[in-house]
């Protein structure tokens, strides 16, 4: 399955990059996640439990998040693997940042590819696709909220 999305931050690109790299901020922004726990001996890798409450994909999932291919402040990759509800989810997202001088906004675009096995797979893209859209929207919005007002461009 492939997903794409766009989110606009009212901040400069460096500020957005910093918040994207802040694991505390990420943990607060990830839907259903309380804490990101660094995995020993694996750089840029964290463990997390998530509680989701969206229709057929409700339940507890445990997963790992890894950051790679960082090119500050333009680009990085997030690789996610999760398990729960008799299902296995693997995904990778490439995130690009671009600053729009005119509007004074940072535009984030993401392209993700995911594979789902087990119970969740049989629900199909019908449920998963809107859920991913909704959760990614929530995630970026929650990150955006954590940007201090003095750093906002508008």
């Amino acid at each position: 399955m492939k997903f794409t999305g766009v989110f606009t931050f009212n901040a400069d690109q460096q500020t957005v990059w910093e918040i994207l790299m802040d694991t505390k901020a990420i943990a607060q922004a990830l839907p259903g996640v309380e804490e990101l726990i660094p995995v020993a001996d694996e750089p840029d890798t964290w463990r997390a439990d998530a509680k989701l409450g969206i229709a057929a994909i409700s339940g507890t999932y445990s997963g790992r998040i890894r950051m790679s291919e960082q090119q500050p402040p333009d680009k990085y990759r997030l690789t996610v693997s999760g398990e729960g509800q008799q299902s296995i989810i693997n995904g990778t997202t490439l995130i690009h940042l671009r600053y729009d001088e005119e509007q004074k906004k940072t535009i984030l675009t993401w392209e993700a590819e995911a594979s789902v096995s087990g119970k969740l797979a049989s629900i199909g893209q019908r449920v998963i696709s809107p859920a991913v859209k909704m959760m990614s929207g929530q995630f970026f919005k929650a990150l955006d909220k954590q940007i201090p007002s003095e750093k906002r461009t508008s």
Binding site: A56, K119, I123, G124, Q125, R126
Partner: peptide, 9 residues
């Protein structure tokens, strides 16, 4: 993976 695994699909 069965993609048609519910009455909705």
């Amino acid at each position: 993976q069965l993609l048609t695994g519910s009455l909705m699909d």
